[in-house]
Structures are given as C-alpha cells and as structure tokens.
C-alpha cells in the first residue's frame, strides 16, 4: 500500500496493526476497509470494538457529482443527560485522506442528527462511527457510486 512505501518499515507495521485491528470490527462494516481508514478509526476509538446498528447514514446511492454529495447521519438515542450520543465520526474509505468530519452532539439538541455535503473522489463506502455517553460504539457504512461523466467541461 501507499502507506507502506511512504512511511517505511514502521508505517508498514502500523498499517499491518490496523489490518489486524480490523478483525475486531464487526462484519460487514469492517469488510474490505483500507488500512488508512482503519488507522483513522483506531486513532479515535483505540482498541474498542464498535457494534453494528443505531447509527444511520443517508447518502444518494449514485452521486451526480462527487464534489457535492449530500449526507445525513442520524443515531437512535433519547438524547438525555444520562443517555445521549457524544460524537459521530465520518470517514470516506477511498478518499486521499479518509477523514471527513466529526460531529459533536449534546443533549441540548433533542435529537441526534447532522446534515452536510461532502466530496467523494471515487465510488466507495462512507463509514460512520458513533460514540455514546455510556462508552458504547456503533458503526455503519453506505456505498456511494460516483459517476465518471462524459461531460468533462
């Protein structure tokens, strides 16, 4: 991988560690993740294991243009002081750098949702990891096909 060639031996080891870490992630959310994405997720959640579910990504299955793709994340949560979503981290598996955004939530929101517009360099999976106030982690992914248009102009 590019990481291994540019970072040298230590980078290769780190990437390998990321791949090993992948086995901790539930399938299919962990299926075929780039080492850089796995490393970016590990950087935030450490060695903890996210579960499937509760966090939802809403994206068009086919993006008309990868430069402006509407994204909505929602998490099932009562959003009370005792039980709420702390953050949702969003990654694009095959972008030049996988980080897309981190949303930090609070009970003052009343509902766990955020909307924005993102850039996707190619057809790929977008991955969301939600951190809950009780320390639990949830993960989900959604594929977006990014079309190569005929009209380059």
């Amino acid at each position: 991988m590019m990481q291994a060639t540019t970072l040298g031996r230590r980078g290769a080891l780190a990437a390998a560690a990321g791949l090993v870490g992948l086995s901790l992630l539930p399938k299919p959310a962990a299926a075929q993740m780039e080492p850089a994405t796995a490393a970016a997720i590990r950087k935030i959640i450490g060695e903890r294991t996210p579960e499937e579910g509760r966090v939802q990504l809403r994206l068009p299955p086919i993006a008309e243009n990868g430069n402006t793709v509407p994204l909505t994340v929602t998490v099932e949560s009562p959003m009370t002081a005792a039980d709420h979503v702390k953050a949702v981290h969003v990654f694009a598996d095959k972008n030049p750098t996988p980080d897309v955004a981190t949303f930090r939530f609070s009970p003052a929101m009343g509902r766990a949702q955020a909307d924005t517009r993102i850039r996707l360099g190619q057809t790929q999976d977008v991955i969301a990891v939600a951190e809950m106030s009780d320390g639990k982690l949830y993960i989900s992914r959604a594929e977006v096909k990014v079309t190569i248009g005929g009209c380059g102009g």
Binding site: V100, A101, R104, S106, A108, G110, A112, R117, R119
Partner: peptide, 27 residues
C-alpha cells in the same frame, strides 16, 4: 452554543464541499 452551553460542533476536513452547509437539531 446556546447561552454559553455547548449544543453542537463539527470538525471539518478537506472532504467537506466548498460553501459548507451544516444543519442540526436543537431543542
């Protein structure tokens, strides 16, 4: 923030489109 209390925040990376649109709920 609302009256000094945090409501919502976002870290943006280069993968956010130009002219950032951000929407979120508030009780």
């Amino acid at each position: 923030t609302f009256e000094g209390q945090p409501v919502f925040s976002m870290d943006l990376h280069p993968a956010i489109s130009a002219n950032p649109y951000i929407a979120f709920p508030f009780k």
